[in-house]
């Protein structure tokens, strides 16, 4: 009798357990692979925020055509209704072409008007992203190097005190090196820290040839296709030279601060921004921004980028 009971219980148990297995089984059988070392994508949407370069490179065999524009002062003594809040003037214009040699290596050329004493700028640049943040955080940040060489094509100035008093061709050149360290904190929030080194072969008298600066920038998504972006550069100046320059020109140096909206329309990235910086080239706006948000000397700016892809695999 006891034995019978046990076998009944036993059979029941077996039935129950296998029944339960059948439900879960299929779920457990599927293994979509280890997400380890999966790279974080789209930390930023484009190669730059407002004044700050990001870790983003364009993909291999893609061409990026970008037009940047900075208008005149919105307010202050040079702004207001008489020049239609800056829209009558353009402080700087930059037209650039970038090409993706590899998915993490972009080279580019650009022409900029220039917004300091130095004008007619031709720039060659390179961005190499050598570290990529991973989803599992085993690599917590992405790091890219950005370097550019700029040459001015303007006519040399006769004025010995001018930054454009070029003797040699090399006097026309300036260099920018940046290490861009970025982290995507969540699907909508990313930050970048950008230690920067500038070198200008020739400057106005008693101006710094070399300058270190730290840039910080961030992006916060407000909707699927719109994000708020902001960036700021803190240059480290030699106080004696700074004082000398400010006394002789009668103008103070300010740090570049930009805020803006970034819109992704699918193919086009459109930036609408405000910044006190008049120039767009790093060797100019980091070292020689003399307009101030506090005095109303900030401006509209926009940038339109269009990417073309030449990567078309043959049909299978």
């Amino acid at each position: 009798m006891q034995g019978n009971m046990k076998s009944i219980i036993c059979t029941l148990l077996c039935g129950i357990t296998t029944g339960a297995f059948a439900q879960e089984d299929l779920d457990k059988l599927i293994d979509l692979g280890n997400p380890k070392n999966e790279k974080v994508t789209a930390t930023f949407k484009s190669g730059s925020l407002i004044n700050l370069k990001t870790t983003e490179t364009i993909h291999r065999n893609e061409l990026d055509f970008k037009v940047d524009h900075r208008f005149g002062d919105i307010a202050g003594s040079a702004g207001g209704s008489k020049n239609f809040f800056g829209l009558d003037n353009s402080s700087d214009i930059r037209i650039g072409l970038d090409y993706g040699l590899l998915d993490n290596l972009t080279i580019g050329i650009a022409r900029a008007k220039g917004a300091t004493e130095i004008r007619q700028l031709y720039e060659a640049n390179l961005k190499y992203r050598f570290l990529e943040q991973t989803v599992d955080n085993s690599v917590p940040v992405s790091i890219a190097f950005f370097g550019s060489t700029t040459v001015s094509a303007m006519e040399a100035s006769e004025d010995k005190n001018s930054a454009a008093n070029f003797d040699d061709f090399s006097d026309r050149m300036s260099y920018v090196s940046q290490l861009i360290i970025a982290r995507k904190f969540s699907s909508g929030i990313s930050f970048a820290l950008v230690p920067t080194y500038l070198h200008r072969n020739f400057t106005a008298f008693n101006e710094q040839n070399n300058m270190f600066a730290i840039g910080i920038g961030g992006r916060a998504k407000v909707s699927n296709r719109i994000a708020v972006v902001a960036d700021y550069f803190l240059p480290f100046r030699q106080s004696s030279k700074k004082q000398y320059r400010e006394n002789i020109t009668g103008q103070r140096y300010y740090n570049a601060l930009g805020v803006g909206l970034e819109m992704d329309t699918g193919g086009h990235i459109f930036h609408l921004n405000f910044t006190n910086a008049t120039a767009m080239q790093e060797s100019q706006f980091i070292s020689e921004t003399i307009s101030s948000w506090g005095k109303g000397q900030f401006r509209w700016g926009f940038s339109i980028a269009r990417r073309f892809s030449f990567d078309k695999k043959p049909k299978e």
């Binding site: 994508t41 789209a42 993909h59 291999r60 893609e62 998915d103 699927n224 296709r225 992704d264 699918g266 193919g267 990417r307 892809s309 990567d311 078309k312």
Partner: peptide, 11 residues
């Protein structure tokens, strides 16, 4: 096109 792939996932 990788840009399409990015848009597919992001947008």
């Amino acid at each position: 096109k990788k840009l399409m792939q990015e848009h597919f996932n992001e947008n």
